[in-house]
């Protein structure tokens, strides 16, 4: 495992834990898109189903379990917890996420490495992950004033994908992967979606002011 891949995994893990701890500690989820969280849960379940069929390493299995359980916990808090669910911005979080699920599933049926259950699930999870942040970005834009922790959550999530792209470039040159166009394209789209957010995040950090996204 190269350093980019490891840093990617760590920023990814950190983003999910930051969000879970924020919700757990403050008992609020304002500014957090439940739709994005449900999409991520679906992404993790679709991709990490191989947990039960293919053993790769202890690191791999533990991380998969942590990702599935922590995102399930976030969804559970937002849907079921008596205090947390009342702070959910339901009226603002209106993105039609079922459209994203349907579109990426069809895409996975057409573009996959092999027409098998495992490969279709894998391609679906990659495509869905690329666009899963959209409801969250729309919600952040509507709320204008972004909570520090929510801002950090999106920042680490974006950093994760950027590190993964560096990892793929590194692997491409050191191991010679030639048929990895699915994650390449999806990863570039996914990272591109964050570009705007990153720009305002750095501005707020540089000027030491609260993050605010333009309408």
């Amino acid at each position: 495992m190269n350093a980019f891949r490891f840093l990617g995994d760590m920023t990814h893990l950190f983003s999910v834990l930051v969000l879970l701890l924020k919700i757990y500690a403050t008992k609020t989820c304002s500014g957090v898109s439940r739709k994005t969280q449900e999409l991520y849960l679906l992404v993790f379940v679709a991709r990490y189903l191989d947990l039960f069929t293919d053993y790769i390493s202890l690191y791999n299995s533990v991380m998969k379990i942590v990702f599935i359980t922590s995102s399930a916990a976030i969804v559970w808090y937002m849907r079921r917890h008596p205090q947390v669910r009342r702070t959910y911005d339901k009226e603002q979080d209106t993105f039609r996420h079922s459209v994203l699920v349907a579109a990426t599933f069809v895409l996975a049926l057409i573009f996959n490495d092999r027409f098998t259950f495992r490969e279709i699930c894998w391609a679906f999870s990659i495509y869905l992950e690329a666009v899963a942040i959209l409801p969250q970005l729309v919600l952040l834009q509507r709320c204008r004033n972004v909570d520090n922790l929510t801002g950090q959550y999106v920042f680490f999530l974006g950093a994760y994908r950027a590190f993964y792209i560096l990892n793929w470039i590194y692997r491409y040159f050191t191991e010679g992967h030639h048929s990895r166009w699915i994650p390449w394209i999806a990863g570039l789209v996914q990272t591109g979606l964050y570009a705007d957010f990153f720009y305002y995040y750095f501005l707020s950090w540089k000027n030491n002011v609260k993050l605010e996204l333009p309408a």
Binding site: R5, D9, I56, N167, H177, S179, R180, P183
Partner: peptide, 10 residues
């Protein structure tokens, strides 16, 4: 093979 190496990522 090339299928397995992508599945070792998260």
């Amino acid at each position: 093979d090339s299928d397995d190496e992508k599945h070792d990522e998260l």
